[in-house]
Simulated assay, not measured.
Amino acid sequence: MVQDLLFNKNNFFSDDLPLLRRKQSAFEIEDLPGLWRIHWQLGDTILISTFYTRIDQACFLWGIISAIIFFTAQFAPINWSLQALLWSVLTVAGTVGMVERSHYWQMIEPISQVVGAWVLLMVSGLVITDLSIFFGWGYLLTHLCALWLVLNSLGYFYSSWKLRSRAFLLMGLLHLAGIAVLPYVGAWQFVVTGTLIGFSALLLAELQWDSHDICAHLAAQQPN
Results as ranks from 00 to 15, higher is better:
M1S: 13
D4K: 14
L6P: 07
N8G: 02
K9P: 09
N11P: 01
L19I: 15
R21V: 10
Q24E: 07
A26N: 10
D31F: 04
L35P: 02
I48K: 03
S49D: 14
T50Q: 03
I55D: 06
L61I: 08
L61A: 07
W62Q: 11
S66A: 15
I68P: 07
I69P: 04
I69F: 02
F70N: 03
F71K: 06
I78S: 01
I78H: 06
V89K: 00
A93P: 02
T95C: 11
V99D: 01
S102R: 13
W105G: 01
Q106F: 04
P110V: 01
I111R: 01
V115W: 06
G116A: 05
V119E: 03
L120D: 08
V127P: 02
G136A: 10
L141V: 10
T142A: 14
A146S: 15
W148D: 05
N152F: 10
S153C: 02
Y158N: 05
Y158T: 08
W161T: 06
R164M: 04
S165E: 11
A167F: 08
A167G: 07
L170R: 02
G172C: 03
L176P: 11
V191Y: 11
V191G: 13
I197T: 05
S200M: 02
E206I: 01
W209N: 08
D210E: 14
S211P: 04
H212E: 14
D213G: 05
I214L: 15
C215G: 15
H217E: 13
Q222C: 04
N224P: 02
